[in-house]
Amino acid sequence: MPHLTIDLEKALALRDRGALFVDARTPAEFAEATIPGAVNVPLLDDEERVRVGTVYKQEGKGVAKRLGVELVAPKIPAMLQEVTTALQGRRPPVVVFCWRGGMRSHALTTFLDLAGIPARQLVGGHKVFRACVREYFERGEWGKLLVLRGLTGVGKTRLLLRLRDEGYPVLDLEGLANHRGSAFGGLGLSSQPGQKAFEALLWDEMRKIPRSGYALAEGESKHIGRLVLPPRVHESLQKETSLWINASIDYRVRVILEEYPAIDRLRADFVRPIKALRARLGGEVVNRLLELLDRGEWESLVRDLMVLYYDPLYRHTRPDRRIEVDIEPLEEGLSSLRAAIEVVLHEKSRT
């Protein structure tokens, strides 16, 4: 039924206007990566998909199709209700996809259409969306990235979030990666998304940056935890004049202690990252850090980690092209930061 299909460009235009996207793949496929904002209404669960695939290989396409019908048929009313519920407040049609735009999305699209729910099957499925994301990061265009940098603990992320609340355009890379971007950056957080999922989320945010506009971001290395920034995105972080945030060691220690809530509960999780510093800091220093951890002397531990490890490691990231901003006291520092942003934007407008 060609009238029930839609290409990716038109589908994304509908998505931008509030259309519901439905991923008909298994929960495991959905968890690995999907189109941001999609809901998962799987025709087959993970075990059922393996069963159908095995039958296909051993007994042929026809037998596998019949097994698929037997497995899916009892679920149809629940699937229709799930989509109906998710559609509340959204604009039809529903856009349905699977991996290649094959039988699974075709079947669910047909069920929805027969039930009177306007639906379209995405031609090419998630595979064509992944190609779109890769193409965007390889050859796409986006606005400038104005980057906040500074030594560990100056509160770059919280400054970005504060500015975002004030209406500034912000690209929160660490938020998308669910990681604070350091050796201890995953402590207390849930698992990071997979690489494909991260790239999809990043694509969704970066396409909102007008080519003639800008967004504020935090300076990152090529890796955020176990995730990798697309090379051209990392290059974009290096191009503009940086906003270098200065703060005292006491201020930075307070910020770190505030960013790791229930820190005693996480005590055991600090052991492995501290031991991993042995090659850089030496056994004697690491043993002292572990003793501070064991005694729960968090302020001393954080201070020593900054002075001995983080500051020497990251001081070299201070770029030549920078505007320095003293962030203490905070409200005065924010005023200085806003003024520095205007200076960078004014410089850009003249080039």
Score class of each variant (00 low, 15 high):
Leu4Phe: 06
Asp7Met: 07
Ala11Pro: 13
Val22Glu: 00
Glu29Ser: 13
Phe30Glu: 04
Pro36Phe: 03
Leu43His: 06
Arg51Trp: 09
Thr54Pro: 05
Gln58Glu: 15
Glu59Leu: 10
Val63Phe: 04
Ala73Met: 03
Glu82Tyr: 08
Thr84Asp: 01
Arg91Lys: 14
Val94Asp: 10
Trp99Arg: 11
Ser105Trp: 00
Thr109Leu: 04
Phe111His: 00
Asp113Phe: 10
Ala115Cys: 03
Ile117Cys: 03
Ala119Lys: 01
Gln121Asn: 14
Leu122Ile: 00
Gly124Arg: 05
Phe129Gly: 10
Ala131Val: 12
Ala131Asp: 14
Glu135Asp: 14
Gly140Pro: 07
Leu145Arg: 13
Leu148Cys: 11
Gly150Trp: 05
Gly150Ser: 10
Thr152Phe: 09
Thr152Gln: 13
Gly155Gln: 08
Lys156Val: 08
Leu160Ile: 02
Arg164Met: 14
Tyr168Gly: 01
Tyr168Cys: 08
Pro169Ile: 02
Pro169Cys: 12
Leu173His: 04
Ala177Ser: 02
Arg180Met: 12
Ser182Ile: 06
Ser182Leu: 02
Phe184Met: 10
Phe184Gln: 09
Gly185Lys: 04
Phe198Ser: 12
Ile209Phe: 04
Tyr214Phe: 15
Tyr214Asn: 09
Ala217Gln: 00
Glu220Ala: 10
Ser221Asp: 11
Val228Trp: 14
Pro230Cys: 13
Glu240Met: 12
Arg252Ala: 03
Arg254Val: 04
Arg254Ser: 11
Val255Ile: 14
Tyr260His: 09
Tyr260Asp: 03
Ala268Glu: 15
Asp269Met: 10
Pro273His: 09
Ile274Trp: 00
Leu277Ser: 11
Gly282His: 13
Glu284Asp: 15
Glu299His: 05
Ser300Asp: 13
Arg303Tyr: 07
Leu305Ile: 11
Pro319Met: 07
Asp320Ala: 15
Glu324Asn: 00
Val325His: 07
Ile327Asp: 06
Leu330Lys: 12
Glu331Gln: 15
Gly333Met: 09
Ile341Thr: 08
Lys348Pro: 05
Thr351Phe: 09
